[in-house]
Design a protein around this nucleic acid. Structure first.
Lengths: 178, 178
DNA sequence: CCTACCGATCGGTAGG
DNA sequence: CCTACCGATCGGTAGG
């Protein structure tokens, strides 16, 4: 709190005329980020009809939110553990709901014959894992912009590494990095 | 340190007759885990000749180490940030070297025509991301054993979600979870 | 938003 | 491995 006050140019005690407690900051960051992720995801789902299209848009939306504010993303991804009840449970429920959207897209894809996976929940978790790690290395000044990161991730997750068949996904903006 | 002492059944001050500082514990955990990851990876590389085989073994080895001790893995994955110099730099160098092994396997695969990826570094990072996230949800008592997790991850990362072609990887122990 | 301060807790040391 | 402590720092409050 002293560091924060210092960055704001005020005394530490003065922070408490703006917020109730240190945890309130954590709560605000966690739930604001959750809202942003949901809004981006819902837009993605609404603009596409195929499971493949929805998944690609959902990945792009997630990467967009994640890279827009890496500091807030790190809090959203890791620090929610320190939320007190009932916020902790509430946050976990939101997280599960978000994951559920991905599961549903994958399930739809499997039913329509677009996808083939051993386990939808596992697939959803793996996709989100690959996505969520980027905040540890992403730098806004780096040479790969968010849209291209999303493109590459979609290609890898949809087609895998294998070179046996023609690529099923050939995005308009297919870019080779490096 | 008080909690640790409590768990050990001794006084907090007594810990310091075993270690020099709190950070020494962090250093030991981080570098011991690094060694374990390297040993497992080298064994994996030595037992296979194709890039596909090596990658599948490397994934299995990584998952094995990660799930064997989830607490130590979490420290290895996140807390290394608090290492002081020169340990911090030394750790980062090891991490980059480890990542380099994965990059090389992928590069070999591309050259031999087994893989097709836009960017080897990006592919290596994505694979490790998908792998490293499992420590956040893995429970030893859960119904998916480490070998099956590795199997599913290999299948997803090598073939993707797409159902357009016959599966290129058909592991001996292919299991459908859930 | 500041001054002045608090009780609690932290990693760690001295000396046995 | 313990007793007895330490200086520093923490989140936060009282009263203006």
């Amino acid at each position: 709190m002293r560091d924060l006050a210092n960055a704001l140019g005020i005394e530490a005690a003065s922070i408490y005329s703006h917020i109730k407690s240190k945890e309130e900051i954590l709560q605000r960051v966690c739930f604001r980020m959750a809202t942003e992720f949901f809004e981006a995801l819902e837009t993605a789902e609404a603009t596409e009809t195929t499971a493949t299209g929805q998944l690609r848009r959902a990945i792009a939306a997630h990467v967009q939110v994640l890279t827009k504010n890496t500091a807030a993303s790190a809090v959203f991804l890791h620090e929610w553990r320190h939320l007190s009840e009932p916020f902790h449970s509430e946050f976990l429920a939101l997280r599960d709901k978000y994951e559920g959207h991905f599961r549903k897209i994958i399930k739809n894809g499997v039913e329509k014959g677009e996808f083939e996976v051993p386990d939808e929940k596992f697939a959803a978790l793996t996709i989100l894992s690959a996505l969520n790690w980027i905040h540890t290395w992403y730098k806004p000044e780096g040479k790969m912009p968010p849209a291209e990161i999303a493109e590459n991730l979609s290609a890898m997750l949809l087609n895998g590494l294998r070179a046996t068949e023609p690529r099923a996904v050939t995005p308009l903006t297919r870019v080779h990095a490096t």
